[in-house]
Design a binder for these strands. Sequence first.
DNA 1: AAGTGGTCTAGACCACCAT
DNA 2: TGGTGGTCTAGACCACTTA
Lengths: 249, 249
Amino acid sequence: MTDATVPGVPLTVPLYRELERQMREALARGEWKPGDAIPAERRLAERYGVSIGTVRKAIDALADANLVIRQQGRGTFVATHNRDRMLFYFFHVAPEGGAKEYPVVKLVSFARGKADRVEAERLAIAAADPVFRMRNLLFLSGEPIIVDDLAIAAARFPGLTEKQFRDRPSTIYNLYQDAFGITVARSSERLRATVADAEAAALLRLPRGAPLLVIRRVALGLGGEPIEWRVSRVNTAHHEYFVDIGAAT
Amino acid sequence: MTDATVPGVPLTVPLYRELERQMREALARGEWKPGDAIPAERRLAERYGVSIGTVRKAIDALADANLVIRQQGRGTFVATHNRDRMLFYFFHVAPEGGAKEYPVVKLVSFARGKADRVEAERLAIAAADPVFRMRNLLFLSGEPIIVDDLAIAAARFPGLTEKQFRDRPSTIYNLYQDAFGITVARSSERLRATVADAEAAALLRLPRGAPLLVIRRVALGLGGEPIEWRVSRVNTAHHEYFVDIGAAT
DNA sequence: AAGTGGTCTAGACCACCAT
DNA sequence: TGGTGGTCTAGACCACTTA
Protein backbone atom coordinates (compact mmCIF):
# COMPACT_ATOMS: atom_id res chain seq x y z
CA MET A 1 0.00 0.00 0.00
CA THR A 2 1.28 3.45 -0.87
CA ASP A 3 0.86 6.05 1.84
CA ALA A 4 -0.59 8.62 -0.49
CA THR A 5 -1.33 12.11 0.81
CA VAL A 6 -4.59 13.58 -0.43
CA PRO A 7 -4.09 17.14 -1.68
CA GLY A 8 -5.68 19.75 0.51
CA VAL A 9 -6.18 17.49 3.50
CA PRO A 10 -4.11 18.27 6.60
CA LEU A 11 -2.78 15.66 9.01
CA THR A 12 -3.17 17.30 12.40
CA VAL A 13 -6.27 16.77 14.52
CA PRO A 14 -8.13 20.01 15.22
CA LEU A 15 -9.16 20.88 18.76
CA TYR A 16 -12.87 20.70 18.03
CA ARG A 17 -12.49 17.17 16.67
CA GLU A 18 -10.68 16.06 19.78
CA LEU A 19 -13.39 17.70 21.85
CA GLU A 20 -16.05 15.94 19.80
CA ARG A 21 -14.30 12.63 20.46
CA GLN A 22 -14.26 13.28 24.19
CA MET A 23 -17.93 14.16 24.19
CA ARG A 24 -18.76 11.01 22.20
CA GLU A 25 -16.96 9.03 24.86
CA ALA A 26 -18.87 10.82 27.61
CA LEU A 27 -22.07 9.78 25.83
CA ALA A 28 -20.90 6.19 25.37
CA ARG A 29 -19.85 6.04 29.05
CA GLY A 30 -23.32 7.20 30.04
CA GLU A 31 -22.03 10.33 31.75
CA TRP A 32 -24.81 12.17 29.96
CA LYS A 33 -27.93 10.02 29.60
CA PRO A 34 -30.61 10.05 26.90
CA GLY A 35 -33.06 12.86 27.55
CA ASP A 36 -30.63 14.76 29.77
CA ALA A 37 -29.39 18.21 28.94
CA ILE A 38 -25.65 18.37 28.45
CA PRO A 39 -23.83 21.32 30.08
CA ALA A 40 -24.29 24.73 28.51
CA GLU A 41 -21.84 25.75 25.83
CA ARG A 42 -20.30 28.44 28.05
CA ARG A 43 -19.71 25.90 30.81
CA LEU A 44 -18.17 23.37 28.43
CA ALA A 45 -15.89 26.10 27.09
CA GLU A 46 -14.69 26.77 30.63
CA ARG A 47 -14.34 23.11 31.53
CA TYR A 48 -12.22 22.29 28.49
CA GLY A 49 -10.43 25.62 28.40
CA VAL A 50 -11.43 26.46 24.81
CA SER A 51 -13.52 29.18 23.24
CA ILE A 52 -17.24 28.89 22.70
CA GLY A 53 -16.79 28.75 18.94
CA THR A 54 -14.73 25.59 19.31
CA VAL A 55 -17.33 24.01 21.60
CA ARG A 56 -20.01 24.86 19.08
CA LYS A 57 -18.17 23.14 16.25
CA ALA A 58 -17.87 19.99 18.34
CA ILE A 59 -21.56 20.03 19.28
CA ASP A 60 -22.47 20.78 15.65
CA ALA A 61 -20.86 17.49 14.67
CA LEU A 62 -22.74 15.58 17.38
CA ALA A 63 -26.00 17.20 16.31
CA ASP A 64 -25.32 16.30 12.66
CA ALA A 65 -24.84 12.69 13.74
CA ASN A 66 -28.17 12.90 15.59
CA LEU A 67 -26.57 12.10 18.91
CA VAL A 68 -27.77 15.32 20.52
CA ILE A 69 -30.59 17.73 19.78
CA ARG A 70 -30.23 21.48 20.22
CA GLN A 71 -33.11 23.65 21.29
CA GLN A 72 -32.61 27.36 21.34
CA GLY A 73 -33.40 28.84 24.71
CA ARG A 74 -33.66 25.43 26.42
CA GLY A 75 -30.42 23.56 26.02
CA THR A 76 -28.81 20.66 24.18
CA PHE A 77 -30.23 17.21 24.92
CA VAL A 78 -28.98 13.69 24.44
CA ALA A 79 -31.12 12.05 21.75
CA THR A 80 -33.65 9.41 22.77
CA HIS A 81 -35.15 6.56 20.75
CA ASN A 82 -38.68 7.81 20.53
CA ARG A 83 -41.10 6.72 17.84
CA ASP A 84 -40.56 9.68 15.57
CA ARG A 85 -36.83 9.35 15.60
CA MET A 86 -37.09 5.64 14.86
CA LEU A 87 -39.52 6.24 12.05
CA PHE A 88 -37.33 8.92 10.56
CA TYR A 89 -33.90 7.36 10.81
CA PHE A 90 -34.26 3.60 10.88
CA PHE A 91 -37.52 2.67 9.20
CA HIS A 92 -37.56 3.00 5.45
CA VAL A 93 -40.65 1.19 4.26
CA ALA A 94 -43.72 3.14 3.19
CA PRO A 95 -46.82 2.50 1.12
CA GLU A 96 -46.35 3.05 -2.60
CA GLY A 97 -46.40 6.79 -3.10
CA GLY A 98 -47.78 7.30 0.40
CA ALA A 99 -46.62 8.71 3.71
CA LYS A 100 -44.60 6.93 6.37
CA GLU A 101 -46.60 5.10 8.94
CA TYR A 102 -45.63 3.55 12.22
CA PRO A 103 -45.82 -0.27 12.10
CA VAL A 104 -47.75 -2.35 14.58
CA VAL A 105 -45.30 -4.96 15.87
CA LYS A 106 -46.40 -8.43 16.93
CA LEU A 107 -43.94 -10.77 18.60
CA VAL A 108 -44.08 -14.18 16.92
CA SER A 109 -41.31 -16.00 18.75
CA PHE A 110 -38.63 -15.44 21.35
CA ALA A 111 -35.83 -17.88 22.14
CA ARG A 112 -32.37 -18.17 23.56
CA GLY A 113 -29.80 -20.04 21.53
CA LYS A 114 -26.20 -20.29 20.43
CA ALA A 115 -24.84 -17.95 17.78
CA ASP A 116 -24.39 -19.47 14.36
CA ARG A 117 -21.49 -18.45 12.15
CA VAL A 118 -23.22 -15.48 10.54
CA GLU A 119 -24.68 -14.13 13.77
CA ALA A 120 -21.33 -14.42 15.52
CA GLU A 121 -19.57 -12.53 12.76
CA ARG A 122 -22.15 -9.76 12.54
CA LEU A 123 -22.37 -9.32 16.31
CA ALA A 124 -18.60 -9.61 16.79
CA ILE A 125 -18.92 -12.44 19.30
CA ALA A 126 -17.60 -15.99 19.31
CA ALA A 127 -19.48 -18.77 17.56
CA ALA A 128 -21.85 -20.57 19.94
CA ASP A 129 -21.95 -17.59 22.34
CA PRO A 130 -25.47 -17.18 23.72
CA VAL A 131 -27.88 -15.00 21.77
CA PHE A 132 -31.51 -13.98 21.96
CA ARG A 133 -33.53 -14.45 18.80
CA MET A 134 -36.81 -12.74 18.17
CA ARG A 135 -39.18 -12.91 15.26
CA ASN A 136 -41.64 -10.06 14.76
CA LEU A 137 -44.42 -9.58 12.31
CA LEU A 138 -44.95 -5.94 11.33
CA PHE A 139 -48.32 -4.64 10.19
CA LEU A 140 -48.91 -1.55 8.07
CA SER A 141 -52.50 -0.40 7.64
CA GLY A 142 -53.57 -3.63 9.28
CA GLU A 143 -51.79 -5.88 6.77
CA PRO A 144 -48.77 -8.07 7.60
CA ILE A 145 -45.99 -6.62 5.44
CA ILE A 146 -42.66 -7.40 7.10
CA VAL A 147 -41.14 -10.38 8.89
CA ASP A 148 -38.24 -9.34 11.12
CA ASP A 149 -35.76 -11.88 12.47
CA LEU A 150 -33.36 -10.34 14.90
CA ALA A 151 -30.49 -11.55 17.01
CA ILE A 152 -28.67 -9.85 19.89
CA ALA A 153 -25.79 -11.02 22.08
CA ALA A 154 -27.15 -12.24 25.42
CA ALA A 155 -24.08 -10.87 27.18
CA ARG A 156 -25.07 -7.34 26.21
CA PHE A 157 -28.63 -7.73 27.44
CA PRO A 158 -28.39 -9.52 30.81
CA GLY A 159 -31.72 -10.70 32.15
CA LEU A 160 -33.75 -9.81 29.07
CA THR A 161 -37.12 -11.56 29.15
CA GLU A 162 -39.80 -12.25 26.60
CA LYS A 163 -42.21 -10.28 28.79
CA GLN A 164 -40.04 -7.17 28.55
CA PHE A 165 -40.09 -7.51 24.81
CA ARG A 166 -43.79 -8.10 24.59
CA ASP A 167 -44.81 -5.33 26.98
CA ARG A 168 -42.40 -2.63 25.84
CA PRO A 169 -44.19 0.72 25.72
CA SER A 170 -42.33 2.15 22.73
CA THR A 171 -39.91 0.93 20.06
CA ILE A 172 -37.46 -1.94 20.35
CA TYR A 173 -34.52 0.45 20.22
CA ASN A 174 -36.15 2.40 23.02
CA LEU A 175 -36.20 -0.78 25.10
CA TYR A 176 -32.50 -1.33 24.47
CA GLN A 177 -31.87 2.21 25.61
CA ASP A 178 -34.12 2.42 28.65
CA ALA A 179 -33.58 -1.05 30.08
CA PHE A 180 -29.96 -1.66 29.12
CA GLY A 181 -28.44 1.76 28.47
CA ILE A 182 -27.62 0.77 24.91
CA THR A 183 -28.10 3.39 22.20
CA VAL A 184 -28.25 2.57 18.51
CA ALA A 185 -26.36 5.33 16.74
CA ARG A 186 -26.15 4.10 13.16
CA SER A 187 -26.88 1.17 10.95
CA SER A 188 -25.64 -0.49 7.83
CA GLU A 189 -28.13 -2.18 5.50
CA ARG A 190 -27.78 -4.54 2.53
CA LEU A 191 -30.73 -5.27 0.28
CA ARG A 192 -31.50 -8.12 -2.07
CA ALA A 193 -34.48 -9.66 -3.83
CA THR A 194 -35.51 -13.18 -3.00
CA VAL A 195 -38.59 -15.40 -2.98
CA ALA A 196 -40.80 -16.29 -0.03
CA ASP A 197 -40.11 -19.58 1.72
CA ALA A 198 -42.98 -21.49 3.33
CA GLU A 199 -42.67 -19.75 6.71
CA ALA A 200 -42.55 -16.21 5.40
CA ALA A 201 -45.29 -16.92 2.89
CA ALA A 202 -47.59 -18.13 5.65
CA LEU A 203 -46.92 -15.14 7.90
CA LEU A 204 -47.31 -12.60 5.10
CA ARG A 205 -50.29 -14.46 3.58
CA LEU A 206 -48.55 -14.80 0.24
CA PRO A 207 -48.13 -17.65 -2.17
CA ARG A 208 -44.86 -19.47 -1.72
CA GLY A 209 -42.32 -18.16 -4.23
CA ALA A 210 -43.67 -14.61 -4.19
CA PRO A 211 -40.87 -12.02 -4.51
CA LEU A 212 -39.66 -10.48 -1.25
CA LEU A 213 -37.24 -7.69 -0.49
CA VAL A 214 -34.64 -8.82 2.05
CA ILE A 215 -32.92 -6.25 4.25
CA ARG A 216 -29.92 -7.33 6.29
CA ARG A 217 -29.06 -4.79 8.93
CA VAL A 218 -26.38 -4.41 11.54
CA ALA A 219 -27.28 -1.77 14.15
CA LEU A 220 -24.25 -0.12 15.73
CA GLY A 221 -23.80 1.56 19.10
CA LEU A 222 -22.22 4.86 20.07
CA GLY A 223 -18.74 3.37 19.90
CA GLY A 224 -19.43 1.57 16.62
CA GLU A 225 -19.91 -1.78 18.36
CA PRO A 226 -22.57 -4.07 16.83
CA ILE A 227 -25.77 -4.25 18.85
CA GLU A 228 -28.28 -6.10 16.74
CA TRP A 229 -28.36 -8.23 13.60
CA ARG A 230 -31.64 -8.12 11.77
CA VAL A 231 -33.00 -9.75 8.66
CA SER A 232 -36.23 -8.20 7.39
CA ARG A 233 -38.32 -9.69 4.64
CA VAL A 234 -40.70 -7.22 3.04
CA ASN A 235 -43.70 -7.78 0.81
CA THR A 236 -43.24 -4.96 -1.69
CA ALA A 237 -46.41 -5.62 -3.66
CA HIS A 238 -47.83 -2.35 -2.34
CA HIS A 239 -44.94 -0.94 -0.34
CA GLU A 240 -41.50 0.45 -1.11
CA TYR A 241 -38.14 0.92 0.52
CA PHE A 242 -37.06 4.51 0.06
CA VAL A 243 -33.74 6.28 0.23
CA ASP A 244 -32.89 9.88 -0.58
CA ILE A 245 -29.36 10.77 -1.53
CA GLY A 246 -27.91 14.22 -1.08
CA ALA A 247 -31.13 15.62 0.30
CA ALA A 248 -30.72 18.90 2.12
CA THR A 249 -32.56 21.69 3.84
CA MET B 1 -53.73 22.23 9.62
CA THR B 2 -52.53 23.90 12.79
CA ASP B 3 -49.66 26.31 12.34
CA ALA B 4 -47.62 24.73 15.13
CA THR B 5 -44.35 26.34 16.17
CA VAL B 6 -41.59 23.85 16.94
CA PRO B 7 -39.92 24.69 20.26
CA GLY B 8 -36.38 25.94 19.88
CA VAL B 9 -36.64 26.71 16.18
CA PRO B 10 -36.51 30.39 15.19
CA LEU B 11 -38.37 31.91 12.25
CA THR B 12 -35.92 34.41 10.81
CA VAL B 13 -33.54 33.49 7.98
CA PRO B 14 -29.90 33.86 8.96
CA LEU B 15 -27.50 35.74 6.74
CA TYR B 16 -25.40 32.70 5.94
CA ARG B 17 -28.49 30.80 4.73
CA GLU B 18 -29.42 33.64 2.45
CA LEU B 19 -25.85 33.71 1.18
CA GLU B 20 -25.96 29.95 0.63
CA ARG B 21 -29.14 30.38 -1.38
CA GLN B 22 -27.54 33.04 -3.56
CA MET B 23 -24.53 30.84 -4.16
CA ARG B 24 -26.74 27.88 -5.06
CA GLU B 25 -28.43 30.10 -7.61
CA ALA B 26 -25.08 31.20 -9.00
CA LEU B 27 -24.24 27.52 -9.45
CA ALA B 28 -27.60 26.73 -11.06
CA ARG B 29 -27.20 29.75 -13.37
CA GLY B 30 -23.81 28.44 -14.43
CA GLU B 31 -22.01 31.55 -13.21
CA TRP B 32 -19.49 29.16 -11.67
CA LYS B 33 -19.01 26.06 -13.80
CA PRO B 34 -18.08 22.51 -12.76
CA GLY B 35 -14.36 22.25 -12.17
CA ASP B 36 -13.96 26.02 -11.73
CA ALA B 37 -12.69 27.54 -8.54
CA ILE B 38 -15.20 29.84 -6.91
CA PRO B 39 -13.88 33.18 -5.58
CA ALA B 40 -11.76 33.07 -2.44
CA GLU B 41 -13.55 33.41 0.86
CA ARG B 42 -12.02 36.81 1.55
CA ARG B 43 -13.23 38.08 -1.81
CA LEU B 44 -16.74 36.71 -1.29
CA ALA B 45 -16.82 38.36 2.13
CA GLU B 46 -16.02 41.69 0.48
CA ARG B 47 -18.43 41.21 -2.39
CA TYR B 48 -21.36 40.42 -0.11
CA GLY B 49 -20.32 42.72 2.69
CA VAL B 50 -20.24 40.07 5.38
CA SER B 51 -17.53 38.60 7.54
CA ILE B 52 -15.43 35.61 6.54
CA GLY B 53 -17.06 33.46 9.21
CA THR B 54 -20.43 33.98 7.58
CA VAL B 55 -19.07 33.12 4.15
CA ARG B 56 -17.52 29.98 5.58
CA LYS B 57 -20.82 28.80 7.05
CA ALA B 58 -22.48 29.22 3.68
CA ILE B 59 -19.73 27.34 1.87
CA ASP B 60 -19.78 24.66 4.58
CA ALA B 61 -23.39 23.94 3.68
CA LEU B 62 -22.57 23.72 -0.03
CA ALA B 63 -19.67 21.40 0.71
CA ASP B 64 -21.90 19.21 2.90
CA ALA B 65 -24.31 18.93 -0.02
CA ASN B 66 -21.37 17.93 -2.25
CA LEU B 67 -21.93 20.87 -4.56
CA VAL B 68 -18.43 22.24 -4.01
CA ILE B 69 -15.17 20.72 -2.85
CA ARG B 70 -12.73 22.57 -0.63
CA GLN B 71 -9.00 22.07 -0.90
CA GLN B 72 -6.82 23.80 1.59
CA GLY B 73 -4.20 25.94 -0.06
CA ARG B 74 -5.81 25.59 -3.52
CA GLY B 75 -9.32 26.90 -3.41
CA THR B 76 -12.95 25.78 -3.47
CA PHE B 77 -14.11 24.06 -6.64
CA VAL B 78 -17.49 23.35 -8.17
CA ALA B 79 -18.04 19.59 -8.03
CA THR B 80 -17.85 17.57 -11.24
CA HIS B 81 -19.41 14.24 -12.15
CA ASN B 82 -16.29 12.19 -12.31
CA ARG B 83 -16.25 8.43 -11.90
CA ASP B 84 -15.34 8.43 -8.22
CA ARG B 85 -18.05 10.85 -7.29
CA MET B 86 -20.61 8.87 -9.23
CA LEU B 87 -19.48 5.62 -7.65
CA PHE B 88 -19.59 7.12 -4.20
CA TYR B 89 -22.86 9.02 -4.30
CA PHE B 90 -25.11 7.46 -6.89
CA PHE B 91 -24.10 3.84 -7.36
CA HIS B 92 -25.06 1.54 -4.53
CA VAL B 93 -24.60 -1.98 -5.84
CA ALA B 94 -21.58 -4.02 -4.83
CA PRO B 95 -20.60 -7.69 -4.78
CA GLU B 96 -21.74 -9.57 -1.67
CA GLY B 97 -19.34 -8.57 1.06
CA GLY B 98 -16.96 -7.06 -1.48
CA ALA B 99 -15.71 -3.66 -2.52
CA LYS B 100 -17.42 -1.23 -4.88
CA GLU B 101 -16.51 -1.58 -8.47
CA TYR B 102 -17.14 0.61 -11.46
CA PRO B 103 -19.64 -0.95 -13.88
CA VAL B 104 -18.97 -1.42 -17.58
CA VAL B 105 -21.94 0.12 -19.37
CA LYS B 106 -23.21 -1.20 -22.70
CA LEU B 107 -25.90 0.68 -24.59
CA VAL B 108 -28.64 -1.72 -25.66
CA SER B 109 -31.12 0.67 -27.23
CA PHE B 110 -31.72 4.35 -27.82
CA ALA B 111 -34.97 5.86 -29.05
CA ARG B 112 -37.02 8.99 -29.14
CA GLY B 113 -40.64 8.74 -28.09
CA LYS B 114 -43.57 10.37 -26.33
CA ALA B 115 -43.72 10.43 -22.53
CA ASP B 116 -46.13 7.98 -21.00
CA ARG B 117 -48.08 8.89 -17.88
CA VAL B 118 -45.43 7.76 -15.40
CA GLU B 119 -42.53 9.36 -17.26
CA ALA B 120 -44.40 12.63 -17.59
CA GLU B 121 -45.19 12.73 -13.91
CA ARG B 122 -41.67 11.85 -12.79
CA LEU B 123 -40.02 14.29 -15.18
CA ALA B 124 -42.56 17.03 -14.50
CA ILE B 125 -43.46 17.40 -18.17
CA ALA B 126 -46.73 17.02 -20.04
CA ALA B 127 -47.91 13.61 -21.22
CA ALA B 128 -46.79 12.90 -24.81
CA ASP B 129 -43.96 15.44 -24.58
CA PRO B 130 -40.90 14.11 -26.40
CA VAL B 131 -38.45 12.02 -24.39
CA PHE B 132 -35.28 10.08 -25.04
CA ARG B 133 -35.26 6.52 -23.78
CA MET B 134 -32.12 4.50 -23.28
CA ARG B 135 -31.58 0.97 -22.13
CA ASN B 136 -28.17 0.03 -20.73
CA LEU B 137 -26.76 -3.25 -19.59
CA LEU B 138 -24.28 -2.91 -16.73
CA PHE B 139 -21.53 -5.45 -16.16
CA LEU B 140 -19.72 -6.09 -12.89
CA SER B 141 -16.70 -8.38 -12.99
CA GLY B 142 -17.63 -9.21 -16.56
CA GLU B 143 -21.14 -10.44 -15.69
CA PRO B 144 -24.36 -8.67 -16.72
CA ILE B 145 -25.91 -7.65 -13.40
CA ILE B 146 -28.12 -4.63 -14.00
CA VAL B 147 -30.58 -3.53 -16.69
CA ASP B 148 -31.11 0.23 -16.66
CA ASP B 149 -34.05 1.85 -18.42
CA LEU B 150 -33.84 5.61 -18.35
CA ALA B 151 -35.89 8.46 -19.69
CA ILE B 152 -35.04 12.15 -20.03
CA ALA B 153 -37.04 15.07 -21.37
CA ALA B 154 -35.90 15.86 -24.93
CA ALA B 155 -36.47 19.55 -24.28
CA ARG B 156 -33.76 19.56 -21.65
CA PHE B 157 -31.25 17.81 -23.92
CA PRO B 158 -31.54 19.49 -27.31
CA GLY B 159 -29.70 17.65 -30.06
CA LEU B 160 -28.73 14.64 -28.00
CA THR B 161 -27.63 11.78 -30.27
CA GLU B 162 -27.14 8.09 -29.79
CA LYS B 163 -23.51 8.56 -30.80
CA GLN B 164 -22.94 11.02 -27.95
CA PHE B 165 -24.33 8.47 -25.59
CA ARG B 166 -22.34 5.60 -26.97
CA ASP B 167 -19.02 7.45 -27.18
CA ARG B 168 -19.19 9.32 -23.90
CA PRO B 169 -15.76 9.24 -22.23
CA SER B 170 -16.98 9.09 -18.66
CA THR B 171 -20.25 8.58 -16.79
CA ILE B 172 -23.73 9.37 -18.07
CA TYR B 173 -24.10 12.15 -15.51
CA ASN B 174 -20.81 13.54 -16.72
CA LEU B 175 -22.27 13.70 -20.24
CA TYR B 176 -25.30 15.60 -18.95
CA GLN B 177 -22.95 18.04 -17.27
CA ASP B 178 -20.36 18.55 -19.99
CA ALA B 179 -22.60 18.58 -23.04
CA PHE B 180 -25.73 20.19 -21.60
CA GLY B 181 -24.63 22.02 -18.45
CA ILE B 182 -26.97 19.94 -16.35
CA THR B 183 -25.75 18.82 -12.94
CA VAL B 184 -27.38 16.05 -10.95
CA ALA B 185 -27.34 17.18 -7.34
CA ARG B 186 -29.44 14.58 -5.57
CA SER B 187 -31.64 11.60 -6.15
CA SER B 188 -34.58 9.83 -4.64
CA GLU B 189 -34.81 6.05 -4.92
CA ARG B 190 -37.59 3.54 -4.25
CA LEU B 191 -36.83 -0.18 -4.09
CA ARG B 192 -38.97 -3.26 -4.52
CA ALA B 193 -38.60 -6.95 -5.24
CA THR B 194 -40.02 -8.41 -8.42
CA VAL B 195 -39.45 -11.26 -10.82
CA ALA B 196 -37.65 -11.18 -14.15
CA ASP B 197 -39.76 -10.79 -17.28
CA ALA B 198 -38.64 -12.35 -20.54
CA GLU B 199 -36.58 -9.35 -21.66
CA ALA B 200 -34.69 -8.83 -18.44
CA ALA B 201 -34.14 -12.55 -18.02
CA ALA B 202 -32.55 -12.77 -21.45
CA LEU B 203 -30.26 -9.78 -20.88
CA LEU B 204 -29.18 -10.93 -17.43
CA ARG B 205 -28.93 -14.58 -18.51
CA LEU B 206 -31.39 -15.67 -15.86
CA PRO B 207 -34.37 -17.97 -15.88
CA ARG B 208 -37.62 -16.14 -16.34
CA GLY B 209 -39.22 -15.56 -12.92
CA ALA B 210 -35.91 -15.17 -11.09
CA PRO B 211 -36.14 -12.55 -8.32
CA LEU B 212 -34.87 -9.08 -9.21
CA LEU B 213 -34.36 -5.95 -7.18
CA VAL B 214 -36.05 -2.98 -8.85
CA ILE B 215 -34.77 0.53 -8.18
CA ARG B 216 -36.84 3.46 -9.33
CA ARG B 217 -34.86 6.67 -9.27
CA VAL B 218 -35.55 10.30 -9.98
CA ALA B 219 -32.35 12.31 -10.38
CA LEU B 220 -32.73 15.99 -9.46
CA GLY B 221 -30.82 19.06 -10.58
CA LEU B 222 -29.34 21.94 -8.63
CA GLY B 223 -32.71 23.63 -8.36
CA GLY B 224 -34.51 20.42 -7.45
CA GLU B 225 -35.93 19.99 -10.97
CA PRO B 226 -36.20 16.39 -12.22
CA ILE B 227 -33.53 15.48 -14.77
CA GLU B 228 -33.79 11.75 -15.31
CA TRP B 229 -36.17 8.91 -14.51
CA ARG B 230 -34.47 5.57 -14.20
CA VAL B 231 -35.66 2.04 -13.53
CA SER B 232 -32.87 -0.38 -12.67
CA ARG B 233 -33.35 -4.11 -12.38
CA VAL B 234 -30.61 -5.85 -10.44
CA ASN B 235 -29.71 -9.51 -10.21
CA THR B 236 -28.91 -9.78 -6.50
CA ALA B 237 -27.87 -13.43 -6.55
CA HIS B 238 -24.31 -12.35 -5.82
CA HIS B 239 -24.62 -8.61 -5.39
CA GLU B 240 -26.23 -6.27 -2.86
CA TYR B 241 -27.64 -2.79 -2.62
CA PHE B 242 -26.08 -1.05 0.36
CA VAL B 243 -27.05 1.95 2.43
CA ASP B 244 -25.42 3.28 5.57
CA ILE B 245 -27.46 5.38 7.94
CA GLY B 246 -25.95 7.89 10.32
CA ALA B 247 -22.40 7.15 9.23
CA ALA B 248 -19.95 9.86 10.21
CA THR B 249 -16.35 10.99 10.32
C1' DA C 1 6.55 34.45 -0.95
C1' DA C 2 1.92 34.99 -1.96
C1' DG C 3 -2.52 33.14 -1.89
C1' DT C 4 -5.80 29.80 -0.37
C1' DG C 5 -8.64 27.35 2.98
C1' DG C 6 -8.61 25.75 8.20
C1' DT C 7 -8.49 26.72 13.09
C1' DC C 8 -9.25 29.29 17.11
C1' DT C 9 -10.29 33.17 19.76
C1' DA C 10 -13.17 36.92 22.26
C1' DG C 11 -16.94 39.15 22.39
C1' DA C 12 -21.37 41.60 21.12
C1' DC C 13 -25.87 40.95 20.30
C1' DC C 14 -30.21 38.37 19.13
C1' DA C 15 -34.05 34.84 19.67
C1' DC C 16 -36.12 31.91 22.53
C1' DC C 17 -37.56 29.55 26.88
C1' DA C 18 -38.60 29.11 31.65
C1' DT C 19 -39.82 31.43 35.85
C1' DT D 1 -35.24 38.37 34.29
C1' DG D 2 -31.70 35.17 33.65
C1' DG D 3 -30.09 31.41 31.11
C1' DT D 4 -29.78 28.96 26.81
C1' DG D 5 -28.51 28.30 22.04
C1' DG D 6 -27.98 31.13 17.35
C1' DT D 7 -25.78 34.67 14.63
C1' DC D 8 -22.23 37.65 13.20
C1' DT D 9 -18.05 40.00 13.52
C1' DA D 10 -12.82 41.01 13.22
C1' DG D 11 -8.73 39.34 13.37
C1' DA D 12 -4.60 36.37 14.40
C1' DC D 13 -2.35 32.56 13.16
C1' DC D 14 -1.65 27.87 10.97
C1' DA D 15 -1.39 24.38 7.02
C1' DC D 16 -1.09 23.75 2.51
C1' DT D 17 -0.30 24.66 -2.55
C1' DT D 18 1.73 27.00 -6.25
C1' DA D 19 5.07 29.45 -8.53
